[in-house]
Design a protein around this nucleic acid. Structure first.
Length: 419
DNA sequence: TTTAGGG
DNA sequence: CCCTAAA
């Protein structure tokens, strides 16, 4: 309890000190200023809720700056400082409290800070820190005019319990953000932090002092070890694309998966679980995906020419019995795609987009697909793929299906093979 | 269950 | 590749 007021006191004094305030303030003004700070913090949270990573980073930087200032004040001239090197000392004026807690959290924070200083990002961080923090102070300027002097601040611990609740709430937020944002530098979080912060604030607002205190200090310590490898080398997403020799759409979605690792780190609430579930679903889906080989396509075409379009179960049973994957539905889907491809190919007059050249089928196969399509029109194929007059008669959707074993099909097959 | 169609 | 509705 006391520890929080102390820490906050320092943060507060820090802000004042930056602006070189010496004005003597009224006691009742303290609460006003505190309210201002609290509002500011809430604003920041709301801001997160509606913004992207950049704002998160800014705030993170601010937090680090905050801790830095606190650390500096440890050895600073401020009279009555209870922090820093003397974290073990217990001569806190009017404080009957657990200085143990104070020492713990302080050291944790400063440790985080020092570790991050080893980070390759240090320079950039410090650089942006100043700008961010500066603007922050300017923004607070109006309230700071009434900022109490350090003398007043020394009497902070005399505030009643309500004030302490308020203070601890604020402090908890600050510390939590320091923790999570420090981790964030490693994983490059995007959307996650937002909800998290919202939940946290709503959690702490009720003012359960003990709860907030425990959470802030405990989690801070727990997470600490993970921060240690603060090397900029580790990029959050090593989307082990091991098993993906797949094509287009897979690549499209992989960026989303890139943030899976960070979900693992912050898996503590239902939201994370939900996201993870959704992703694993996508994963499973891909896991079953198998690239169609040319031989498979040939088999499929053979089957269609034998049984006709729509007899997917038969084709599967006779020609794909060996391959456990490739359900009848898969066959149908593939055929649908083949038709589409052949149509596109035909549309382009044989010119293949270099980008798709790799995936395009051999000309003979395409020809065969086209011919098959005329004989066994697939229901609702994107426009008449058969405008080449030759077999306009077969344009009628109703039929071929019922007349599978067309010798026609066999002829087609042989002709293709001969080519 | 199988197929068609949409996502 | 998956899901769903219809047959």
């Amino acid at each position: 309890m006391d520890g929080f007021s102390y820490e906050f006191e320092f943060g507060f004094r820090t802000n004042c000190g930056l602006d070189s305030f010496t004005t003597q303030g009224e006691d009742d003004l303290k609460l006003e200023v505190l309210d201002g700070l609290l509002d500011d913090i809430d604003e920041v949270d709301d801001f997160h809720a509606a913004n992207d990573l950049s704002t998160v980073c800014d705030d993170f930087l601010l937090d680090i700056e905050f801790t830095e200032k606190v650390a500096k004040f440890d050895c600073g001239p401020v009279e009555g400082s209870h922090l820093g090197n003397s974290s073990s000392e217990s001569h806190s004026p009017g404080a009957s409290g657990s200085n143990v807690a104070v020492g713990m959290s302080d050291s944790s924070i400063t440790a985080l800070e020092s570790e991050c200083k080893n980070d390759s990002l240090e320079k950039m961080v410090n650089c942006e820190l100043h700008g961010t923090f500066k603007s922050k102070c300017e923004y607070q300027a109006p309230d700071m005019e009434k900022c109490p002097s350090s003398h007043d601040m020394d009497r902070f611990d005399e505030l009643d319990s309500d004030d302490n609740v308020l203070l601890s709430s604020i402090l908890s937020k600050c510390k939590k953000r320091v923790k999570s944002t420090v981790l964030g530098t490693k994983v490059k979080r995007l959307r996650k932090p937002t909800k998290r912060y919202i939940e946290e604030s709503s959690d702490l607002k009720p003012g359960s002092l003990m709860r907030g205190q425990n959470v802030s200090t405990a989690t801070l310590k727990d997470k600490h070890p993970k921060v240690t490898p603060c090397n900029g080398s580790s990029k959050g997403s090593q989307v082990a694309s091991e098993s993906w020799l797949r094509g287009g759409r897979l690549k499209k979605r992989s960026p989303i998966l890139g943030f899976e690792s960070d979900d693992d780190i912050f898996s503590s609430d239902s939201d994370d679980d939900r996201v993870r579930k959704r992703k694993s679903k996508i994963d499973d889906r891909r896991k079953n995906q198998r690239m169609w080989t040319l031989s498979e396509v040939m088999k499929l075409i053979d089957g269609i020419s034998q049984f006709g379009v729509g007899k997917w179960t038969d084709i599967k049973r006779l020609l794909f019995s060996s391959s456990s994957h490739r359900t009848p539905i898969d066959l149908r889907d593939k055929w649908r795609n083949l038709l589409r491809a052949s149509y596109a190919h035909q549309k382009n007059k044989g010119e293949v987009d270099p980008k798709h050249a790799m995936r395009s089928l051999p000309k003979p196969v395409l020809c065969r697909i086209r011919e098959l399509a005329t004989i066994h029109p697939y229901p609702r194929v994107p426009y008449s793929k058969k405008c080449n007059g030759d077999t306009d008669s077969s344009r009628h959707p109703i039929k071929a299906k019922s007349a599978p074993f067309s010798s026609h099909g066999r002829n087609l097959r042989t002709t293709i093979k001969e080519q």
